[in-house]
Every structure is written in structure tokens, then in C-alpha cells.
Amino acid sequence: MNQIRLVSDLQKSKEYYKHALGCKIDGWGHVERNDPRLGFILYQAENSEDVVPNKKPRQIPYPKNWEGPSTGCDTYAYTDWERMDGLLEQFRADGAIIHYEMKHEDQGDLLWKEFAVRDPDGYVILFGAGTSKQPL
């Protein structure tokens, strides 16, 4: 599955996804990354107002007293717990726009961590991982 992204500057977006996020890009604007798995197709928008990242959703009661999303998000990519810290540092070193830093949550039987990056048009990609709590 590949998500479609309308972008304001196709060449700038292709460079960002390639260099800052470590993706492979072909001449058509297909963006791929294997670890974690991402897939996009970048299209040049006809007008800048056509570029519309998702807004923050309405807060509702969630299980386990979760407050809900703190920001709008366009993609959620899951990866391995052990990989998260290195992935954030890799993105930071490669010039990715860090939308928010690593967050840690205790969800009762599960520990969760996530961070988010943003592309030049404001599309937000969350990266998250969970691990089971080990009994003492």
C-alpha cells in the first residue's frame, strides 16, 4: 500500500524523503523505505491550497486513560522497540524535521514509545513501538 501525498514542490520533497528519511525514490515519485516500512507516491499539487495534511482529531474517551493524539498525523509507522532510539538519532543526524521528541507511555500491560517527523509540507509521520512489561 502506498499513500498519495500532494506536495508543493516535488523536487524538494523527493530530496527530503531521500536524504532526511533514508527512502529510495524513483523518477515517478515513488518513495519506499523498508525498515520501518513506508510507502508513498509524491504528486506535484496543482495549487498550494491542495496540500492538506491531517489536522488534530477531536478528543474522545480512549481505553486505558489515553489522552488521545497530541497532534495531527498522516502516517503511523510501527517498528521494533530496540530500533526506536537509533531511528530518531538517524533522522536527526540526516536533517529530518522532528515534529516531537520521543514520548514514553505506560499502558498497563504494555510500554509504548513514539516520536514524529514532519516533511516540508507539514505531513506528519509517527514512528511507534511497544513492548510487553516483563514480570518482576
Rank of each mutant, 00 (worst) to 15 (best):
E101H: 14
E101C: 12
E101V: 07
E101F: 10
E101A: 15
M102K: 14
M102C: 08
M102P: 01
K103V: 10
K103M: 10
K103W: 05
K103F: 04
K103C: 06
H104E: 15
E105R: 04
D106T: 09
D106W: 12
D106C: 11
Q107A: 08
G108E: 06
D109G: 12
D109L: 12
D109T: 09
L111M: 12
L111T: 00
L111A: 09
W112F: 14
W112S: 07
W112K: 07
W112N: 10
K113S: 09
K113Q: 13
K113I: 02
E114T: 09
E114M: 10
E114G: 10
E114S: 15
E114I: 04
F115A: 01
F115Q: 01
F115C: 00
F115P: 00
A116V: 06
A116K: 05
A116F: 02
A116D: 08
V117R: 03
V117P: 03
V117A: 11
V117N: 05
R118L: 10
R118Q: 15
R118M: 15
R118Y: 05
R118D: 03
D119T: 01
D119V: 01
D119R: 01
P120I: 12
P120T: 12
D121C: 08
D121K: 05
G122N: 02
G122E: 04
G122L: 08
G122R: 07
G122I: 05
Y123R: 06
Y123W: 09
Y123I: 06
V124N: 03
V124A: 06
V124G: 03
V124L: 07
V124Q: 03
I125A: 10
I125K: 10
L126F: 13
L126E: 08
F127L: 11
F127D: 02
F127Y: 11
F127K: 04
G128E: 03
G128R: 04
A129K: 11
A129M: 11
G130R: 01
